[in-house]
Computed example of a mutant assay.
Amino acid sequence: MRPDPAELLDDVKTIAYQAGEAIMAIYNEGDFDLYQKDDESPVTSADYAANEVLTEGLQKLTPSIPILSEESCEFSFTERKTWQAYWLLDPMDGTQEFVSRSGDFAVNIALVVEGEPVLGVIYWPTQGTWYYAIKQQGAFKQVGQNIESIHVTKYSRKDFTTADLRLAVSRVQKSNTVGQYLVDAEQHQKVALGSCSLKSCMIAEGGADFYLRVGPTGEWDTGASHCILREAGGNILDSEFNALSYNQRETLANPDFIVIGDRKVDWKKVIIPHKTQRTL
């Protein structure tokens, strides 16, 4: 029996909030443990605390649905490929932002059904803000009790040029990392924000128009935001403009990817396709 995302949404938002509160308790105290994973990416005790809250909450909510998290992903592909539906989690996207105390980190929850994210919830705990979407039901932003529908910026006017497009950038990534893949890197206004998923949400609500992610990420980095972006009128594609896949390969590593707003823009006039350098 397929899970109904609409029936699960309110509970999932609550669980995301609870995980955010677990992060904020550590963030406000300022006392946390910092570790380095095998891939040399950072992880903190706040990541693990959020993971525990999410895992416990979702297991109670949907005992029969498996959970795949960045912090607990030790399932073989032989096992994973039998899953019709599963939860895909990034307990704290933006660990480096947490460490640097920028506040730009978020809890990510996606429900993936038959290889497609059909429910996405992202909670930004320092701002008390949710972004969420259900397939074919639109994308939304919630601050407190205020809920509004969100959409990417549309560029249908006749005087539009690609120079109008705003590029979301990381505060820490070197500009030439993504600049080498742009037709004209200098023409775009740059909008800086922290975590990968929050930049995607900024595009979904019209605050920027595109974003390039060059470097190691996992499927948990895109699952929730992919659903939100699609419902807001955008998309996430790999660096050669192909669709991203979920749970279709032995590896859970993403290729380099492109987050786009208005799908009617000819993005190949803006972004130079490239093959990722990592083995997938």
Rank of each mutant, 00 (worst) to 15 (best):
N254V: 03
A16T: 09
E71P: 00
E71V: 02
Q18D: 13
M202H: 10
I23M: 05
K141V: 15
V214I: 15
Q248C: 12
L61N: 08
S239E: 07
K275A: 10
E231S: 11
R2E: 11
S69C: 02
E97C: 10
A232W: 11
W124P: 00
T78E: 13
T177A: 06
P273C: 04
D262K: 03
C196Y: 13
R278F: 06
G138R: 12
Y211D: 09
H274K: 09
H151S: 14
D4H: 07
G233F: 12
Y246D: 10
W267G: 05
H226F: 14
I134T: 13
F257Q: 04
V99T: 13
D11A: 12
S195V: 05
V112H: 08
S175V: 12
P66M: 09
R157L: 00
I26F: 03
E71T: 01
P3R: 10
D10M: 04
L68P: 01
R249K: 15
A85D: 02
P125I: 08
S197W: 00
R166H: 10
V259W: 04
G218M: 08
T222Q: 06
T126V: 14
A192D: 07
G206Y: 09
F160I: 07
W130D: 11
S45N: 11
G179R: 15
I150N: 09
S239L: 08
A110E: 05
V113N: 05
T62E: 02
S156I: 03
T78S: 09
E114K: 14
Q137H: 11
S41I: 07
E40C: 03
L167Y: 13
T129C: 13
K174A: 14
I15A: 08
D266A: 09
W124V: 13
G94L: 09
K269H: 02
G144E: 04
A232S: 15
T177R: 14
Q248Y: 07
L88P: 10
L8E: 01
A163N: 14
C73G: 12
L34W: 00
V259D: 00
C201P: 03
G115T: 05
H274R: 07
P117Y: 04
H226R: 13
G57Q: 03
I147G: 00
V112A: 07
T177V: 15
E205C: 10
D184C: 11
I65T: 09
F77R: 02
R166L: 06
Y131D: 02
V169P: 08
D209F: 05
T14R: 14
Y48V: 04
T162H: 12
F98L: 12
Q187P: 02
G20M: 05
G115A: 09
P216L: 12
L58G: 03
Y17G: 11
I203E: 05
Q137V: 00
V118I: 14
I260G: 01
Y86A: 05
Y17I: 06
D10S: 12
S69A: 13
C201N: 07
T162K: 11
P255D: 11
F98S: 09
D184P: 06
K141H: 01
